[in-house]
Design a protein around this nucleic acid. Structure first.
Lengths: 220, 220
DNA sequence: GTCTATAAACAGATAGAC
DNA sequence: GTCTATCTGTTTATAGAC
């Protein structure tokens, strides 16, 4: 019995083209602003294939979320699968590395521009598909970060404020992607290029280190 | 010559009802997912009034943003108009008060649920209307916070990393509103009620104090 | 200023040929 | 599995009565 646990979708030329085009368009403009005609045209296939492969526009949307879980997960899980650090300093370094990676993937990586937007849209306007993204991306990353945080500051990994502290750090990064437009206005940045991304990364790591220092002082 | 500086819109029963209904619906579902029929029905007026008062759906959207600037600004400017603190401790307290206020307004206040969503949508999918929201809400608040931060830690108010630190703190709050759905999943919260909002507030203030402590250590 | 009635365009979905 | 052609409902906008 092979890994039929998740109903492996039968690939086909048109099917994959539709998925790629749909992720890009749903991510850039949102579900309602994107028409099935646009998607089909961008994919270079006929509109009728959407109904054939996915049952309709909503089915296509859901399939996009599944595809994103599969496609993005490997880009983060390599960090997650490492042996858990045992000293606070190692744990701090591991958190810093994951956060830096997230800054680059979410804020900078051009290939993930629209996928990131797709995921953030689902956070903002959740559908039943949200659980799928939670389990494949958010849950593994934030559990790992929570465990690392607990090691770094000597906190209880099960405590609510431990998880909350981690969500605050992750949220800071998400905010810079969500509110990019207004942050660029405020920072007087034209775009977020390599220099700006590094400034954001430095700020995030500074926040991490400040919070670790403060948390350690409480429980020495 | 009275304050004709911003072209005061002539009020009328139907006009205001349309604005209120549109802010609620655009905020909850987004521009494209909301139909003019829905808005007119929710407002209790006829569809044709949208074209009459605002020239069309897009004009109504823009008028909503103007209305939001007018309506929400007073709820924050009372804090902004106070005399600038002179000691670092007073500045820290002022920042903490503004951030607490933001947590309550953005995350908790039911009446601002949809207005907040309207504004965050515009950050995420900016239109020419963005500048309007920037100037009426984000700019005054974040300039004030930046000045306070400079006083609190003895930094240069003009420096890029001063502004960035402030955007990081504000962004953390925005993230909890944008990603509320997935944060509730991760935190195992059913909703964000008074208890949860207080936990978030405590976390935000802890981040503030940790960053201030770290920044002061650098320049004693 | 507010309404009815209608126009003109466009949406997603489907039947059936290949 | 992919296409053409078409159906049905809905969209925003407008012309004109009140």
């Amino acid at each position: 019995m092979d890994d039929k646990t998740k109903a492996p979708p039968p690939p086909s030329p048109g099917r994959q083209k539709l998925l790629d085009a749909a992720i890009a368009l749903f991510g850039r403009k949102g579900f309602d602003a994107t028409t099935t005609r646009e998607i089909a045209e961008a994919a270079g296939v006929n509109i009728a294939n959407i109904a054939y492969h996915f049952g309709g526009k909503e089915g296509l949307y859901r399939a996009c979320a599944e595809e994103l879980g599969r496609a993005i997960r490997p880009r983060v899980t390599d960090v997650l699968s490492r042996k858990a650090p045992e000293t606070p300093q190692e744990a701090r370094n591991a958190i810093a590395e994951i956060l830096s990676r997230m800054v680059h993937l979410i804020i900078r990586e051009p290939a993930l521009e629209n996928p990131s937007r797709f995921i953030l849209r689902e956070y903002f306007d959740p559908t039943p598909t949200l659980h799928l993204l939670y389990q494949s991306l958010m849950e593994p990353i934030s559990s790992r970060l929570t465990a690392l945080w607990a090691t770094a500051v000597g906190a209880d990994p099960e405590a609510e404020d431990t998880r909350l502290a981690v969500m605050g750090l992750v949220g800071q990064i998400l905010a810079f992607r969500v509110a990019r437009s207004i942050i660029c206005l405020r920072m007087e940045w034209e775009t977020i290029g390599p220099r700006e991304a590094e400034a954001i990364e430095t700020m995030v790591i500074a926040t991490l280190d400040a919070r670790i220092a403060a948390a350690r002082k409480e429980r020495p």
